[in-house]
Amino acid sequence: MSPYQNHRKLPKKRPGRFLKFVDETSLGALVVYGLMVYVGAVVTISLIEFAAFNFFGLQWVKSSSGGPIDFWDMIYFNFVTILTVGYGDISPHGFGRTLSTLEALFGVGLFAGGVSLLTVKALRPAPNTIVFSKYAYYCLEEQRFMVIFLNTSVSRLENCTISSYFKIGRNWQVSPAVSPPFLTTAVQTFFVDSHTEDEIREKLMDGDCLRVCVSGNLLGSEVAASVQYKPHEILVLQSRTFIAKYEPFWRPNFGDPEFFEMFHYKPEGAQTLAERFALN
């Protein structure tokens, strides 16, 4: 099959499960899992070797003192081998040299892979680097949708892109992407799709939605987040003047109830898009 036809071939299973697991697992948990793999490998190998010594008389490890080797000596020897330390007080001989070489190669590969994985995990932006408000807004004066989101990191996002599209009447209407040079750590408010009230009233259907994606570069790493707002999650407001409330929150305290209420702004009596345009 030509490599240009690979996009037509379905995989046998969904790819990316390991990456999804790493993304959803904390750094501390990954360290614990790595230690468990090391300990598990050492204990398993030691049990096999100890059984071979005692039940089959196969002896491929010897002590420099010439004394007998018990199970805990095997644990110690295999930890030293898999960590590629090699003190020499217990050493392999004969066929044991081949096994110890393979064990050391496994340990080096496991260590290198673990360090690489933890480095990527540590430098990877947090999943909630970009957080959206619970609501999107339709401003009547501008007849445009507006979204509110926050860069929760302590550094600004560079080379950003904000793309959006509104599904109305079974048709996807894609707006040109907006490319601000950077986004600060303050609350961000952006107009996205433009639609008249008459168009929405005429075409709005159950299943329509507004989708928004924000991406950018955070200290050399790519970060992106997307959100979907259904009509009952889009509030209808007269104008965008309420955004002045966000100005005092340059670097907000995320645990502040006042900020939480403002970020998820919902004035009393505000109608949703579904309610205003009588969507059942």
Rank of each mutant, 00 (worst) to 15 (best):
R240M: 10
L123A: 02
H195T: 04
F145M: 03
L204F: 00
Y87W: 13
H93F: 13
V22P: 00
V39P: 04
T185M: 06
F53S: 06
A104K: 10
K134H: 12
S91E: 11
P267F: 14
L110S: 06
I130D: 02
K203R: 14
A225M: 08
R201K: 10
G107M: 08
T44C: 09
D256F: 13
D193Q: 15
L204S: 02
E233V: 00
S179Y: 09
W172F: 11
A224L: 02
D208Q: 02
L19H: 12
S163Q: 10
K12R: 14
K121W: 00
A136G: 05
A244G: 06
R211G: 13
V178Y: 15
F71L: 09
V227P: 01
Y137F: 03
A112F: 09
G169I: 00
N151E: 07
L99G: 11
Q188C: 07
I162C: 08
E197V: 01
P127K: 03
A186Y: 08
G57K: 08
I130Q: 03
L35K: 07
G207W: 10
T185C: 12
Y76W: 12
K245H: 09
S116L: 08
A274N: 04
W172Y: 12
A225I: 05
G220A: 06
F106V: 11
T119C: 08
E261Q: 11
P252I: 14
F56P: 02
S239P: 01
S63N: 09
E261F: 10
Y87K: 13
W250T: 15
L279W: 03
E199C: 08
R240K: 12
D89C: 07
P11W: 03
S116A: 11
G109L: 14
I234A: 00
L150P: 01
V227K: 15
L150T: 03
P257N: 10
F50R: 03
K266F: 03
F182T: 12
L218E: 00
R170F: 06
E49Y: 11
F190P: 05
A225G: 13
F18Q: 13
S91Q: 10
A186P: 04
E233P: 00
E49K: 12
S91M: 06
S226W: 09
N78E: 06
P127G: 02
G16K: 14
W250F: 03
P127W: 00
E199K: 13
T81Y: 03
V42W: 05
N6L: 11
S175T: 10
S175N: 13
L105A: 14
V214M: 13
L102R: 14
A112Q: 09
S194P: 05
S153C: 03
A136E: 01
Q271L: 09
W60T: 15
I168T: 06
F145Y: 08
L83A: 12
V174Y: 12
F50S: 04
G34M: 04
K266Q: 09
E49A: 13
I243C: 11
A51Q: 05
F50A: 03
N6F: 14
S175D: 10
C160T: 13
T101Y: 15
V61L: 13
Y229E: 02
A274H: 08
T101V: 04
A41G: 06
V80S: 09
V37M: 02
I45T: 15
L279Y: 07
N151S: 07
L19M: 07
M262W: 11
W250P: 02
L183G: 02
V131S: 07
L219H: 09
P252R: 07
P176Q: 08
I130Y: 03
D73S: 12
Y165G: 08
P181Y: 15
F145D: 04
P3V: 15
G66R: 08
N159W: 08
